[in-house]
Design a binder for these strands. Sequence first.
DNA 1: AGGGTGCTTTACGCAAACGTCAGAGGAACG
DNA 2: CGTTCCTCTGACGTTTGCGTAAAGCACCCT
Lengths: 125, 125
Amino acid sequence: MTIREMSEAFEVTPRALRFYESKALLAPYRTGQKRLYTKRDRGRLKLILRGKRFGLSLEEIREILDLYDRGSRNEAQLKRGCEIGRKRLAQLESQRAELDETIAELRVELAWFEDQSARHRPAAK
Amino acid sequence: MTIREMSEAFEVTPRALRFYESKALLAPYRTGQKRLYTKRDRGRLKLILRGKRFGLSLEEIREILDLYDRGSRNEAQLKRGCEIGRKRLAQLESQRAELDETIAELRVELAWFEDQSARHRPAAK
DNA sequence: AGGGTGCTTTACGCAAACGTCAGAGGAACG
DNA sequence: CGTTCCTCTGACGTTTGCGTAAAGCACCCT
């Protein structure tokens, strides 16, 4: 997959892909000069974009991506991985709770709006 | 509530509070020169910080805050409010789905890590 | 009156995450 | 062979979200 195909598939610019690569979030193969993206890269990009939607910085995302790289690891790395993973998990779960609360509040607000709209134009039945 | 008390209560800097005000996210009273924050401002700041954790820009947060301002509204404003609210709600719900997925994946990863750690140091039982 | 503390505005600085050229290098096509 | 098209690598520009002085009031203390 070329950089163009990749960028169109995920709706990001080629510039962004090169930028992520410069930050070690992606590492496509090279045929001569050109980049070639594999399934692995697509998986990573998916995680990158998702992380961004959650408000994570690229640096934080890199930490997570590194977590998903099953290379040879020593004991210290494993321990560190557990730590990071647990921390991140706690973070995500608290974010989930907040998100639920936010959704509930927004629902109330929206109900008020729709009620007002109905009152304003009662002919619409 | 002074700016200092406010900043300490929410763990943000006074600079950030003034910045939010300059972007019309907050609008504390003034006694002479000094800012005074009320309950309303505290509510808004809570929403601001929460929005930030979800990865929203200050501009997007402002849209939501405006939604929560129950002033006099004409029909057009009500309709617009419904639109924004529904859109934002859909966004949040899709984010929630993604978040659930992410948590599930991270749990799997973490289980792998803990398994490896155990294998590495089986004496720890 | 002088000094300290805390608030104000104004202004410049800075990192993150790209956007936007500029210039060069293949490959493909007629 | 020239032209077009895509790609590459810098390099500088831009926006967001504040941080960090600089300079000025206001009040309090002694």
